[in-house]
């Protein structure tokens, strides 16, 4: 089986990678392109630590062959914050101590981002649904759910101000 060149976007950056067939998006992002915010808790779809957005949809990058993102836009945690300002989800994670060791945090933030992009005013049950595929071993989840709810409020008030 021969390697092939795959082109896609990571954030605003156009990238082109040479990959063997079935190389995962996770492997390419972490080890070819240096996006190490994409974590590797299990590499088999069980922990959510590698979650990224593909055209805005949350995806487990460890399960996705990189060929599948050809021509699409991948968003990793690196793209979320401005250089001098955190995204409201990130700030809420700090405010609510929604992490301890921090290893699951990138995936948690990304699935939260996907949720709030889709539904700016989620119920608690909807927040828990969004987090259901992500494993946290430290916090007990409650602080994460609170952070997402708080971020939704902040984003809503910002939206109201900009209108």
């Amino acid at each position: 089986m021969v390697s092939s060149i795959v082109s896609f976007q990571v954030g605003d950056r156009e990238v082109e990678v040479l990959v063997a067939p079935m190389t995962t998006l996770q492997t390419v992002l972490r080890y070819q392109l240096g996006y190490t915010a994409v974590k590797e808790g299990c590499r088999q779809g069980g922990c959510g630590s590698c979650a990224v957005l593909v055209d805005g949809e949350p995806v487990l990058s460890c399960l996705l062959p990189v060929e599948d993102v050809a021509g699409r836009r991948v968003t990793t945690l690196e793209a979320l914050a401005e250089p001098d300002a955190l995204h409201p989800i990130q700030q809420a994670f700090i405010d609510h101590l929604a992490f301890q060791c921090g290893y699951c945090t990138p995936g948690m933030v990304m699935v939260s981002k996907a949720l709030l992009d889709r539904d700016p005013d989620p119920s608690r049950a909807e927040i828990l649904d969004a987090l259901a595929g992500n494993v946290c071993r430290c916090t007990g989840y409650a602080p994460i759910a609170e952070a997402v709810a708080d971020a939704a409020r902040v984003l809503a008030s910002r939206g109201a101000q900009s209108r």
Binding site: R30, Y31, T36, A37, V38, K39, E40, T76, L77, E78, L80, A81, L86, Q90, Q91, F93, I94, L97, F99, G102, Y103, T105, P106, V109
Partner: peptide, 21 residues
């Protein structure tokens, strides 16, 4: 006081062991 490593964790800048090559 806030965690001193909090910003690193939420931005993914914290370098864990296998983040190095």
């Amino acid at each position: 006081v806030p965690r001193s490593d909090g910003v690193g964790h939420v931005t993914g800048r914290t370098l864990f062991t296998t983040d190095r090559s």
